[in-house]
Amino acid sequence: MEESNLSVVLHKVNDLRLENTAIREPGKGEVQLRIARVGICGSDISLWKHGCIGKIKVTSPFTLGHEAAGIVSKLGEGVSNLKVGDRVAIEPVTTCGRCDKCKNGRYHLCSKRIVFGMPPYNGGLTRYHVHGADLCYKLPDNISLEEGALIEPLFVTIHAARRAGITLGSRVLICGAGTIGLLSLLVAKSYGASQVCVIDLNESRLRLAKSMGADVILVPKNNGARELADEIEECMNGKPTISLECSGDPLCVQSSIYATDSGGCVVCIGLGPDDVTIPLVDAVLREVDVKGIIIYPHCYPIALALLKSGNIDVKQIITHEFKLQQALEAFELVDRKEGIKVMINCE
C-alpha cells in the first residue's frame, strides 16, 4: 500500500479505513506537521461504533485523531513562533475569536468552535497534517512525543480540577479508572488533594491507580446509588469534598451526588446517555454543586509546566503502542476495553 500520507479515515458507522489522503501545503499562519504520536480516545470509538458523540454526528468521511504530537516539517507564510524541526503538541480546538465567549476568555464555549478530528474536520491520525501555528505548542526537551500526545486529555482533567476547585486538603472521589480518571488522579494529587479514592469495576486498572498514588481504591459491591455512596464514605472514612465522575455511568453520577459532602462539588466529565435521572433535591438541600465541562480553556501552559517539572508522570497510563499500519487492530483492542491509553506511532 502506498504510504505517502496514510490516514485513518472514518466513512460511516463501523466503516473505518486505512487510506491515502492528500498532503496539504501550509497556508498563511499554518504549519505542516509530520505526525509522530496519536492517542486513541473514547470519543473516537463512539464515532466509529455509533456514528455520533452527543450532538456531533458523522456525515461524511474524515480523518480521526485529536490527541496528537508531531514535528514541524514546513512553515506557512507569516509563521514566526516555530521553526522546521520543532517538536509540538497540538490544541485541536479553533474558534471565531470575535464572540463574547471568546473575548471573555471562555473560547471553549464558542458556538462556532471547530475540533479537528471530530466530524467533519480532519484530525491528526495521519502522516502529515496542517494546523494553525498558534495552536501548536513547542515541547520542552524533557517532554517526549508520547507525553505530547497525552497533553490534550490532560487538559480535560486540568479544566475539571479548576471547575471543581481542588486545592490543598481536598478529599477527592474519582469514578472510573480509564485515561481521564487516572489523569484526574495525577492532577488532583499535584493540586494538593490530601486523599483520593478511585472506584472502578476493573481490578487491574485499580491496581494501576494505587501504584500511581491513589490513597483508596474500591470495587463497588452494590447496585444501588445510595448503597454505593455508603461504601465510598466507609472506605474514605468520611465523605469526599469533591467528586469527579469520569465514567458516564448513570449509577455513578447518582452515587457521586449522594457521596459528596454538603457544600461540595461534583464535576461530570464522562459522557453517558443523553438523559440521566439525578437526585436533584438531595444536591439542592445540601448545596452540592453539579457542574459539567466541555473542551478546556487556557490549559496548555499549566500542562506543559506540570510535565516539564516532573510533578506528574503521564507515561504510566500508556499500555499499548501500534504502528499506523496497525491502526485498525488498535481500534479493535480499545473497543474490547483492553489496556488504557493506546498510542499510534505514525512515524
Rank of each mutant, 00 (worst) to 15 (best):
W48S: 02
L154D: 06
D335L: 02
M212H: 06
V334W: 00
E231H: 00
A149N: 06
M212W: 14
Y137E: 02
E25I: 03
G78D: 12
H129C: 11
R113F: 15
V276Q: 01
K83F: 03
D215L: 09
K291Y: 07
F331A: 00
L168A: 06
L304Y: 00
I318F: 07
K221N: 07
P61V: 14
L150C: 12
L75Y: 01
Y191H: 02
R205A: 08
V13S: 06
F62W: 03
V84C: 01
C52H: 15
L186T: 03
N81G: 08
Y300H: 08
V334E: 08
V276K: 13
K239R: 15
L306F: 12
C41Y: 04
L75K: 09
R226A: 08
Y107F: 14
P119L: 08
A164Q: 04
V9R: 07
I278L: 14
G176C: 04
S4E: 11
L145N: 03
K189S: 07
L183N: 10
L206G: 05
D261R: 11
K112E: 15
A36Y: 10
V342N: 07
D282S: 14
P140R: 05
A327N: 09
E287Y: 11
G213T: 09
P119F: 11
H50I: 00
N5I: 03
G39D: 06
R207A: 14
G213F: 05
Y258V: 09
L64F: 12
C102A: 05
H66M: 07
G123H: 09
K239Y: 07
D261F: 00
R205H: 10
G264H: 02
S4T: 14
A193G: 03
I242V: 15
H50S: 06
G248F: 07
Q32V: 01
G76T: 01
G117L: 14
C252T: 02
V9M: 09
D275F: 08
P140T: 04
N142K: 15
P273A: 13
N223T: 10
V93D: 00
N14R: 12
L47T: 01
G70E: 10
L18I: 02
R162M: 13
T167V: 02
A229R: 05
K323W: 00
G238C: 09
G76A: 03
T126L: 02
N237G: 08
D275G: 00
L10D: 13
L75P: 06
R336D: 13
V9Q: 03
A161E: 06
M236R: 05
G264T: 07
E347C: 06
